[in-house]
């Protein structure tokens, strides 16, 4: 049976992880490869690396980091941040990335999804959507959540699927950072609407939230950052907790 995926997310700036990391076993808390190796050993199903600086000067650093990750990490990983062309994606594929995630650039130029799916296959293209519920509609935001757009979550996700996205990474801005749980209602609706996998992001605070996101939100995968980095929810404990509750977990 296909298992639900647990995905730690690492924010990268100039080749180093940012946000605090709290592991005694890690010698260099800023080394993404060391942290990623630890997560892979602990049973992470995939990893996401986000280049949060994403400037032109930084891009070369990021590409060489992606190559090092591919060299040492034996599980799949997605890279994102500032990818705005087929050429950008091609450089990351060449460096060894399994998937790329595109966000603002896809909103600005939706045809980019078609072009990337055609060039590399749908399985390579993750469309990341940051959305915020304002009154009723979920409004898609870009530029790290700073800019509201005229797009709505559900119609944009459907369009991304039609254009060839292989997966949707949905972050609820209302839930992100709260540690009060994922956006269950929106996820459940998204999962009924789409025939491609959905990764839930934003709001993970405890192990029960993961059970909810899989059972009630019907998500295929769940992503989190700080709760893993600070050891609040150790990966092996989380996987055991979910297995004990009959959720399909590797």
């Amino acid at each position: 049976m296909l298992t639900k995926r647990i995905i730690p997310c690492l924010d990268i700036k100039e080749g180093r992880t940012v946000k605090g990391i709290n592991f005694e076993s890690i010698r260099d808390a800023g080394d993404p490869v060391e942290l990623a190796s630890l997560y892979a050993q602990q049973g992470a199903d995939e990893l996401v690396f986000l280049d949060i600086a994403a400037t032109n000067e930084n891009r070369k650093t990021f590409s060489s980091l992606v190559r090092e990750i591919a060299r040492y990490i034996n599980i799949p990983f997605t890279v994102g941040g500032g990818i705005s062309s087929v050429e950008d994606a091609s450089a990351l594929l060449e460096a060894g990335a399994d998937k790329v995630s595109i966000n603002s650039a896809a909103v600005r130029n939706p045809k980019l999804i078609d072009e990337m799916a055609k060039a590399f296959g749908s399985q390579f293209v993750v469309v990341a959507i940051d959305a915020k519920k304002v009154d009723n509609p979920w409004i898609v935001h870009t530029h790290g959540g700073k800019k509201p757009t005229d797009k709505k979550l559900f119609s944009w996700a459907e369009e991304a699927q039609q254009r060839g996205a292989g997966e949707i990474l949905f972050t609820s801005m209302n839930h992100d950072g709260t540690k009060n749980g994922f956006a269950i209602d929106a996820l459940s609706k998204l999962n009924q609407l789409l025939s491609i996998p959905v990764i839930a992001s934003g709001g993970a605070g405890n192990m029960g939230h993961f059970m909810d996101v899989f059972l009630l939100g019907k998500a295929d995968a769940a992503l989190a950052a700080s709760i893993f980095h600070f050891g609040e929810v150790p990966l092996p404990d989380l996987k055991k907790y979910l297995k004990d509750r009959n959720i399909s977990i590797r």
Partner: peptide, 11 residues
Amino acid sequence: AEKVPHMGWNS
């Protein structure tokens, strides 16, 4: 609920 692509870990 079985989506396509078949993406992830399976036995």
